[in-house]
Amino acid sequence: MTEIRMENMSFSYGNCNVFSNISLKIEGSNLVCILGPNGVGKTTLVKCINKLLKPTSGHIYINDNDVQDMHLLDLAQIMAYVPNSAFSVFSMTVAEAILMGRHPHAGWTTSENDMDVVDKAIDTMDLQDLSERDIRELSAGQLQRVMIARGLAQEPEILILDEPTSNLDVKHQMEVMRFLKRYAVESDTTILMVCHDLNITAAFADRIIIMSNGGIFADGKAEDVLTEDCIKQVYDVDVKVIDVEGRPHVILLPGIKEEKT
């Protein structure tokens, strides 16, 4: 079983402190979501995990190996990262973009197994019809699905996604989230996701980590974490939390009525 362990991790850009002394343990075939206001360091945190950034102090261990001592290729074999957006200067087909996900495992040539894995990822993300399209011609939502497919093609033990549903329509949002939740269990994968949508998170996450003011504010199951009080403290907005299918559902209160009176 895969385990990510952070010990007293701090990060600052120059003098600007992002977060300090975070200690966390993420393990098991779970869908873990990180919530929090803008600029609180959610993306910075995940980038420390996959060695894109180096924490100012503290350590991150993956299966007891210090990330900073691991080679990028070894890391890429067990961990995939799905960025929020992507670009390419030159033309690149959807198929080529997703095939890149095989790089950490594949040799120089593309094997039949690589083709099968990619084919399955393309199917899963509903991209068969787009496979020869240039990724620069896709909509933001289609591109996001391509990036997720690339992450799946990497067959990781840990899948990290940065706001994977931000550009998707509601149907694809639900389908992607439902898929990720199932995928975590079926392929024994730890999925760590930075998210902004409170309700999507509440409906699907096995565990929610809320970051605020340079640290972890709350950590636990949706019903324990997403309370009216907590959301007021973290986001400074008034909400009403109701129960929908056994999960909390957050209703934002516009507060227009009060302003009038």
């Binding site: 980038k47 890391l75 961990m79 990262y81 960025p83 890149m100």
Partner: peptide, 20 residues
């Protein structure tokens, strides 16, 4: 060749695909 392809999609993505 493969690594040159990967360099084309941006440094961060390239690193997470194991290319230094």
């Amino acid at each position: 060749a493969n690594q040159l392809n990967i360099m084309g999609i941006g440094d961060e993505s390239a690193k997470t695909l194991g290319v230094n």
